[in-house]
Computed example of a mutant assay.
Amino acid sequence: MSRGAISAGAVAALVLVAGCKAVAVDTEGGPSDDGKPRSTATPSRTPTEASPRTPARSPAQTPTRTPAHDPAPHTPAPAPKPGKTLMEQGDDGKRVRELQARLRQIAWFGGNPTGTYGPVTAAAVKGFQAKRGLAVTGVTDTVTWSRLLGMTREPTRSELYAGGGMPPAKPDKRCLTGRVLCIAKSSRTLTWMIDGRAVSTMDVRFGSQYTPTREGTFSVYWKSRHHVSTLYDTPMPYAMFFSGGQAVHFSADFAARGYAGGSHGCVNVRDEKKIASLFAQVRKGDRVVIYK
C-alpha cells in the first residue's frame, strides 16, 4: 500500500482522535454498509415483570411509626419537712428524760436516761428519724414526737430513773423529828434528815425478791468501817447495821452495775464519797425508817 493510500479503518481512527465531536461507531469499529457511521444509541431499559419497581409512597400513604414509650423523667420525692421543734441539744428536764426512756424502750438509746439532751441523745433521735423516713435533724419536733409516742408506752418511774437520780419521795412522818436515815423504796433514795431538814440524799438499792430489805422503824446498833460479810465473804465498807445482818453500806457492785443487781437485804449505796460523809455523821442509836 502506498504512502498516500490510507485504509478506511485508519481514517475512522483519525476522525475519532482529531475531531472535536465524537462519532459513535459500531461494535466492529467500522462504518455501516452504506458508508455512514452506524448509530450505537443504547435503548432505554424497561422494567421486567420479574422485578417490578415499587412505586414511591406519598406522604399520606406512609404509615406513621409509633415511638416507643418514653417515660417521664424521674422526679425525686420532696424531702420530708420537720415539724415544730420541741426539744434539742442543750435542753434538759423531765421531758428530755421521757424522750430518752421511750427511745430506750425500742433500743435506740442505750444508756440510762439523764434528762440532758446531748450528742448521744441527738444521734439516737437521728437514727429513729432515718429509720421512719422523717426529716433527719437530731431535733425532736412534733412529727418525730408523735411517731415515737405511737410506738412506745408511758415510761415507769423506774424506767425514767433507771440510772438513779430519782427525786426523793415525800418523807414519811416518822422522818420529821430527830436524826433519821429516811429510806424510801418507791424513789430508791436515802435522805439523811435532822429535825425534818434534808441534809443529803443518795441513790440506794435494796434486796432481791427472795432476800428483801425489811420495812419499819429501826436504829443503828453497830458501825463497821471496813466490814466484810461473814455469810457471803463480800466487802461491806461503811456498814451501819440496823436489823440483824442488814445494814446500810457502800456497794462496789452497785457502783459498777447499777440496778441490774441487788443485795441480800442490805441497803446499798453506790456513791462512796456520800456514804463516807454519812458514816462520819451517823451515831449509834440514830433511827432508820424504811417505807414504801
Results as ranks from 00 to 15, higher is better:
33 D>K: 08
221 Y>M: 05
13 A>Y: 01
165 G>E: 04
191 T>N: 05
20 C>D: 15
274 K>D: 13
228 V>Y: 12
52 P>W: 00
201 T>A: 09
34 D>G: 11
158 S>I: 08
14 L>P: 01
106 I>Y: 04
204 V>M: 08
280 A>I: 05
207 G>Y: 07
248 V>P: 05
214 R>P: 01
124 A>R: 08
54 T>W: 01
291 Y>V: 00
35 G>V: 10
179 R>H: 11
259 Y>I: 08
193 M>F: 03
142 T>H: 05
140 T>G: 00
234 T>D: 08
48 T>N: 15
94 K>G: 14
69 H>T: 06
182 C>E: 09
251 S>Y: 11
87 M>Y: 04
3 R>W: 11
34 D>Q: 10
236 M>Y: 03
3 R>T: 12
222 W>D: 10
2 S>T: 13
242 F>Q: 12
152 T>A: 06
24 A>D: 12
104 R>P: 08
218 F>K: 04
280 A>S: 14
114 T>D: 09
253 D>H: 13
233 D>V: 10
22 A>I: 13
200 S>I: 11
160 L>I: 06
248 V>A: 01
167 P>N: 01
111 G>R: 13
55 P>R: 08
146 S>L: 05
267 V>R: 01
27 T>K: 13
254 F>C: 03
134 L>F: 00
81 K>A: 05
10 A>R: 10
96 V>C: 12
85 T>Y: 11
226 H>C: 09
174 R>C: 03
36 K>C: 15
283 R>E: 14
258 G>R: 04
2 S>K: 14
288 V>E: 07
267 V>C: 02
277 S>M: 00
87 M>D: 00
34 D>S: 14
290 I>S: 06
278 L>P: 12
117 Y>H: 02
117 Y>F: 05
75 T>W: 00
220 V>T: 06
121 T>D: 03
36 K>H: 15
136 V>S: 03
41 A>S: 10
163 G>M: 03
262 G>R: 04
103 L>K: 06
194 I>E: 15
200 S>Y: 08
216 G>D: 13
70 D>P: 08
257 R>D: 09
288 V>D: 06
61 Q>I: 07
141 D>H: 10
123 A>S: 12
58 S>W: 11
6 I>C: 13
24 A>W: 09
186 S>W: 01
183 I>Q: 06
105 Q>D: 06
161 Y>G: 02
120 V>T: 15
165 G>W: 09
92 D>I: 07
11 V>E: 13
249 H>N: 15
184 A>F: 10
242 F>E: 11
160 L>H: 00
246 Q>T: 03
13 A>R: 02
257 R>H: 14
90 G>A: 04
64 T>P: 12
74 H>K: 09
218 F>R: 01
18 A>F: 06
23 V>P: 06
97 R>M: 04
214 R>Y: 03
174 R>V: 08
30 G>T: 09
216 G>I: 09
108 W>G: 08
